[in-house]
Design a protein around this nucleic acid. Structure first.
Length: 284
DNA sequence: ACAGGATCCTGGGGGC
DNA sequence: TGCCCCCAGGATCCTG
């Protein structure tokens, strides 16, 4: 579910609350997540201070004092929030870290809980024992560049290297990290490119527009704290607002924002894809 | 190399 | 109210 803007929002929400806190207790339920949880991690976490929070693609990284890295992926329905221990725990809360603020202020006094909830359990929580181990994990999975670091010349070259549908390429985390189904459709609408077009047949201008479209759409979505369709909430529990600015995703049957042609939906790369048949022609 | 399908899960919505 | 089917912000694995 959460794509880059949602993950970025979670990190921005959690960072000021978690940095400086110490982990006092770890609680887990019996459910297995996408990646298996190891028992020894609980002992490793206790007593550790949170040094920083950052994002890489759709991954949320909690940096701990000892160089350990507690890493979350939200899958489709993951939620990572801070709550007061007195707040009732919702169903499917799989991991709870009790945290103690380092320097109690008037605003944040007393223990809190970092709660990872994931109804469908496609998400994960994993501990890497060192930053280097995390880096090699990203390396081995071939995780691509951050969209904001895209160098347009290299980007065009990358797109010309494969015959796959451009939609499939945008969803491939090895090509660019953080784009998912919503923002792929929005970026392609922005660029005026049909999702099923062969990547290697795109013109340089189209490839450039797609690259710029990704950055434009993600930037604006972050400003709006991501998109909430059904499950997503930020680290502070707030919904996103970018769903109100969608021009493509979920717009099938409605008039195109640009030309008023009826928007369409089709399955591309196994995912529902939304586009304007007039602004985004199937072949060049 | 790539498309397409199945898989991992739960829950919501529509049709009957 | 209930049942059945399809769908979902992701990612991986298998077959052809």
């Amino acid at each position: 579910m959460p794509e880059l803007p949602e993950v970025e929002t979670i990190v921005r929400d959690l960072r000021p609350v978690l940095v400086g806190c110490t982990i006092r207790k770890v609680e887990r339920d019996k459910e297995e997540l996408r990646r298996p949880w190891e028992r020894k991690w609980e002992k490793l976490l206790i007593g550790q201070k949170v040094k920083g929070m950052r994002r890489r693609g759709k991954w949320i990284i909690t940096e701990l004092k000892s160089d350990n890295r507690l890493v979350f992926h939200m899958g489709m329905t993951g939620q990572l929030t801070v709550a007061s221990p007195s707040e009732a725990r919702k169903d499917h809360t799989h991991l709870i870290l009790e945290i103690q603020p380092g320097a109690p202020s008037k605003l944040s006094r007393g223990a809190k809980e970092l709660r990872f909830r994931d109804v469908r359990r496609f998400g994960s929580a994993t501990l890497f024992e060192a930053e280097a181990a995390l880096e090699s994990f990203f390396e081995e999975s071939g995780l691509g560049p951050e969209p904001f670091d895209l160098e347009l010349e290299a980007w065009r070259a990358e797109l010309s290297r494969t015959k796959r549908a451009i939609k499939a390429v945008l969803l491939d985390q090895r090509v660019v990290a953080g784009v998912g189904n919503i923002y792929a459709d929005e970026a392609l609408f922005h660029a005026g490119v049909h999702p099923a077009r062969a990547s290697d047949e795109l013109s340089a201008a189209e490839a450039t527009r797609i690259g710029k479209g990704i950055v434009a759409v993600l930037t604006r979505a972050i400003e709006e704290r991501g998109s909430t369709i059904r499950d997503y909430i930020g680290g502070s529990g707030l919904r996103g607002g970018y769903q109100d600015e969608f021009l493509a995703y979920g717009k099938a049957g409605q008039p195109c924002n640009r030309c008023r042609t009826k928007m369409k939906q089709a399955r591309v790369a196994g995912r529902a894809s939304h586009f304007c048949p007039a602004c985004q022609k199937d072949a060049s």
